[in-house]
Structures are given as structure tokens and as C-alpha cells.
Simulated assay, not measured.
Amino acid sequence: MKRIIPLLALALFFSCQNTAQSKKEQDAVMQADPIEVPIKNRKARAYFASGCFWCVEAIYESVKGVDESISGYSGGHTKNPTYGSSNTGRTGHAEAVEIIYDPKVVSFETLVDVYFASQNVTQVNGQGNDRGPQYRSIIFYQNEEQKQIILKKKTALAKKLDAKIAAEVYPFQKFWVAEDYHQDYEKLHPNNSYIRAVSIPRLNSFKAKFPKEFLKEETH
């Protein structure tokens, strides 16, 4: 028994050290200068986290001007996150999407409107039954102009709803592309039980209330 107590104390000591170190690393991510992704082939990129990336990917691909939505991970302090590691909640990363869009067709401001219109904006650490820090809501900004757009809309929405908006606002650092089997998941697996019960209803709910002029006529 005398040996067990010191061992438990030692384990607790290192656990606290690891937690403190993780918090320090995560704070550094949140306080870092944003990295701006240059326009390439006349296409810009934006990054959002809003629960399961299968759902968010399909939502953004229903918007005019969006060429592609890629599932991945962002917002954390570890390198090379995977689906398994992010699900532990210890990497700091959230399931996120990279939106490749034509800024002449759809603005960053409209993409932020899509973000807020397609989720439960007051739910902390998740969307629906998908819960945990890996499912938390984050909007990433790449410059001061984007940051002010986000903050202005978040403040206005909080006032309108008289509620606290859960979305965190992070400086963009890096996007890690998710495993191949996550890409276009809703499109490739329309009969999957989760897709039918969660992804498609969430997409249809968004499309029903968002202005039609911003939506593609034919979407998957």
C-alpha cells in the first residue's frame, strides 16, 4: 500500500503537468498571429468547425460560389491529427472544413452567414448528439478584416437571440486534411444511417431558411 500511494501521486503529478502543458500550447494557438492563405487560381479558402464535418461539408457545397468543401482538423496544438486522436479531445483540434470558393461569386461575409444559419449556435462543445471538444464550433479568421466581420455578426446574433453564442473565434494556423474515407461522405453514402438521420435533415433545414439566391439549384 505504501508503494501504491507514491505511484498514484506520481501519476497525478505528471497528469497535471501534461494538462498544464496542453493548456499552454492551446493558449498559444489562440493567441497566435493569423496565417493568410493566398488566393490561388482565383479561388480563396475559408475554414469553419461546426460539429461533424460530414454535415458541414455538404452544407457548404450547396452554396453558390463554393467549388469544394474538404473535411479535416484544425484549431489544435498537435501535429498530424487523425480521426482517432482528435476524438480523444486531447489534441485541441476540432472537426473542420476547408471551403474553396470564388470570392467574386460568394463573399466571406456570406460564408459566415451560412455558418451561423446551419447550426445550433448556442450549443457548447458539440452539435446535437455529437458532443465533445472535437465537435465544438470555431470560426477561423485569416486577417483583421475577417475577424471584425465574424465578431460583428456574432455580437448581433447574440443580441437578437438574447443568448450567448458558442462559436469560438480563432486565428487560422493550419488545416490538416482528414482521412480519404471522410471526404464527400454524405454524397457517397446517402443511405448511411447517420447521414439519413442527421446530415440530410440538417442540410435540408439550412436550405429551407437560407435565401434561395445564394443556393445552387441542384445539390447532392
Rank of each mutant, 00 (worst) to 15 (best):
R3P: 04
V124T: 07
G72T: 03
Q31T: 15
A178P: 01
Q127V: 05
K152D: 15
T219A: 11
G84T: 15
G126C: 10
F140M: 10
G128A: 09
T219D: 12
K153M: 12
T110F: 03
K153S: 09
F206K: 02
G89R: 01
T155M: 13
L10A: 13
I200N: 01
P103D: 08
F116D: 03
M30Y: 14
V112Q: 04
A9Q: 10
V121G: 00
K24D: 13
I195A: 02
L8R: 06
Q142A: 03
H77G: 03
A178M: 04
T82N: 09
K79L: 14
A178E: 01
T19F: 14
F172T: 00
N129S: 15
Q119V: 06
V63A: 03
E217H: 06
F206W: 08
I165V: 13
I39E: 12
Q173S: 09
K207I: 15
A28F: 05
E36V: 11
S71P: 00
I99Q: 02
Q173I: 11
I138N: 02
A94C: 13
V29M: 09
P201G: 09
N120V: 05
E95T: 01
P171I: 09
K2T: 12
N204I: 03
A166I: 03
Q26G: 08
T155V: 11
Q173Y: 07
